[in-house]
Design a protein around this nucleic acid. Structure first.
Lengths: 417, 417
DNA sequence: TTAGTTTGCCCGTCGACCATACAAACCCGC
DNA sequence: GCGGGTTTGTATGGTCGACGGGCAAACTAA
């Protein structure tokens, strides 16, 4: 029983705190509300126009905002407003290690993808070191591209399919990669000195991408389910990624759905959700052969093809998957009080045959269903959700702590060499 | 899809924000760290001694802190420190409506219970109005007692066994009371004008009590399970009660544990946890008769008695209850990444025969069990946990917003009449 | 008695926001 | 074409709150 009560919950505040809060507030206001004049920002945030001017000047100086000419809406009276919007020179690097591919992306503050690459490699058999070497080479290419486009890199994040201790950047366990206790952030940091590195679970990052640009754009409280060989989950609470005490939160795939024994799971337990609705299990139930070298995505494609032509076995299987998934989701919604569910990974393409039964399960099993309906969406981002989410993680850091970009850039300039 | 993105996440900051933050910081530092001198507070918070002096002066003025003589520890050199500790004149009223009783309590900032009363009434058959009338009479007696002891009342909270919209103070549904859509805060507010009233789910408040004074004192992330006729849950995340988007979070009793049909639940669904480990179900499985008028507590007592003398049926039943409960808890821990589980309500007294199987389930089913063990505790607070938690809810408000007590007291002074 | 230490308060400074005033730029009607 | 009304963005003085240094008070130890 750790006695955390002794530590004060809130650190001392200061005028720099005020400045930082307001810098972030103004930046996020424009990020969330779209292009906007100083005067409107002032009116909507409650700050004085003078204060907003000063804050905006600093944000422009940090290359986070830019002035984009005058507001040309017709019929306006008075002095024309100078429109402010997010600058697009600040970018973050997204990296992803997955079972059968590596990926890298370069995304700017406005959400535009400036560079993206995916390489198919079977990482199941490789040791972590060589895999990272390869990933770092891809990252270097992205950094070169950033330099060519005269972009300012503020950091990188790595998506990993496994249990990540996000504070330290250590991957504790990635069963499908065969990694245990590997310091990913440290190892990449050595190879790319100066570049701030974060590591996160792929499902969490995919959820972040959904919130940043995908189906969950307007939802502040939702769960993203990520169907692969395993099943991952990422949960957003009040617009923030839910991590929990150590960053292990959102492990939706290991929620128990078979309480009377059930199949053995890769995690060592029995009756986990992923033993029932994992992609391999679905494929087998539908009578689809798995050739060990083939990519899982083709399996999904085959399932979709069969479902589209009305294969009864597939429909029946997906119905069952939907109700089990729905019941498990309902439990999560009962615990977290969520507004939406986003089906991603292989569940995205299969959504047309899943949503109905998921919705039914939610309607009947969520206690508060009568007062707060939980929507069901399909992910549209596809396979690259996680790597985009990785970049978005860093960009969100910038939005919530804009004053930090100075140091970030100072550091990353070293990494360019 | 509500477009909450437009609203800025953080409101503008100000020097009054700074002052408030620091007032709260100093107060919580002393509340959490025990009696302390100004100089130590300064050293430990990072504030200047001068600033701390000024903040402490204001807190003393608000009757939240008091100076209690000099530090008499031997061997100290230098000018003796003036010890500061929480003042005990500020109190909150806790109220509780339960199926078979009403309760009221008066608790001060230091956690001392200044007054407490429990009245056994069968509220199942009464309309909400008369029940509240009775409860308000009890509250008035508590307010009289507060006046007699010269205490300053800062607010009241009501614990209700049901779904509560905490912002509005409306009870949406309390199946065991037979209430629907009843504005508890409003109705009590009319009868006790001026007294700030909050309404919360009883399990959430019991969890709060566990964190405030009970078994979960040192845990910042834990789930409290509340076994009664139904099963409730209260979840703490980073030292704060988890509510979710609408305040419906933590509904642990309606997590699905039987995915193949299962018994019909009071909520209208099938296979909810409370249909398997609810108190009535346990009692029946152990062959204990339920006389409709009797209090549930006596049933628990009987179960404990039989377990103590080694009744095999009871032991076997509780083993099964423990593993189901444990598996459901493991799902919650996988989702929330919690450090502890507290067994309360009827599970408290029965804990000796439950913890082992709960622990086993957690160890095998929690994905991160290897890196973060989840402790299992039994609640020691018993039946009055919720009503104490209700008072604690208000007292926590005071700790997190000490500057508000001025207005609070201004208001409550009217309610005294 | 004296030196050393710690505490708590006073005072000048600094930084950040607010309120107000003001100039710039535009629309509209005459 | 020109002045009135309107809106925008900046400049200026005021206030508030924390910081830093200094200082008297109060106690211990030699």
């Amino acid at each position: 029983m750790t006695s955390d009560r002794l530590r004060p919950a809130t650190i001392r505040a200061d005028q720099t705190t005020v400045r930082r809060t307001n810098l972030g507030g103004v930046l996020r206001h424009i990020a969330g509300g779209g292009p906007c004049s100083r005067a409107r920002v002032a009116a909507e945030t409650g700050l004085t126009r003078g204060t907003v001017s000063s804050l905006v000047a600093e944000l422009i100086d940090l290359s986070l905002l830019r002035e984009t000419g005058e507001d040309e809406s017709p019929g306006r009276v008075g002095r024309p407003a100078q429109t402010l919007e997010l600058a697009d020179r600040t970018v973050a690097v997204g990296l992803e290690v997955n079972v059968d591919y590596l990926a890298v992306s370069l995304e700017d503050l406005t959400g535009k993808v400036r560079y993206e690459r995916q390489v198919f490699v079977d990482n199941r058999r490789s040791a972590p070191g060589p895999v990272l070497d390869r990933l770092v080479r891809m990252a270097r290419q992205a950094l070169d591209e950033a330099e060519r486009q005269e972009l300012l890199v503020v950091g990188a994040a790595v998506a990993v399919p496994g249990l990540v201790e996000s504070d330290s950047g250590v991957v504790l366990r990635a069963p499908n990669l065969g990694w245990t206790q590997f310091a990913v952030a440290g190892e990449i940091g050595v190879r790319l000195p100066g570049l701030p590195i974060r590591v996160e679970n792929e499902a969490n990052l995919a959820a972040l991408a959904e919130h940043w640009q995908g189906s969950a754009k307007g939802s502040r409280n939702f769960i993203f389910v990520f169907g692969e060989i395993g099943v991952g989950g990422g949960i957003f609470v009040e617009g923030e990624l839910y991590r929990g005490a150590h960053g292990f939160g959102g492990e939706f795939g290991h929620v128990t759905v078979d309480f009377e024994g059930g199949a053995l799971c890769a995690c060592g337990s029995h009756g986990c959700l992923e033993t029932v609705v994992g992609q391999e299990v679905i494929a087998k139930a539908c009578g689809i052969e798995l050739d060990s070298g083939g990519r899982m995505q083709s399996v999904t494609a085959e399932l979709v093809r069969r479902a589209e032509v009305g294969d009864v076995l597939v429909h029946r299987t997906l119905d069952a998957v939907g109700s089990t998934l729905g019941a498990a989701l309902a439990s999560a919604v009962n615990l977290f009080d969520l507004e939406a569910v986003v089906l991603g990974g292989c569940f995205g393409p299969l959504a047309p045959w899943l949503t109905e039964s998921v919705r039914t399960a939610l309607r009947t099993r969520v206690l508060s269903a009568e007062w707060s309906t939980c929507e069901v969406y399909a992910s549209e981002l596809g396979e690259l959700a996680a790597v985009r989410g990785a970049a978005a993680l860093i960009l969100r850091d910038v939005l919530s702590a804009p004053w930090s970009v100075g140091e970030r850039r100072l550091a990353t300039s070293e990494a360019a060499s």
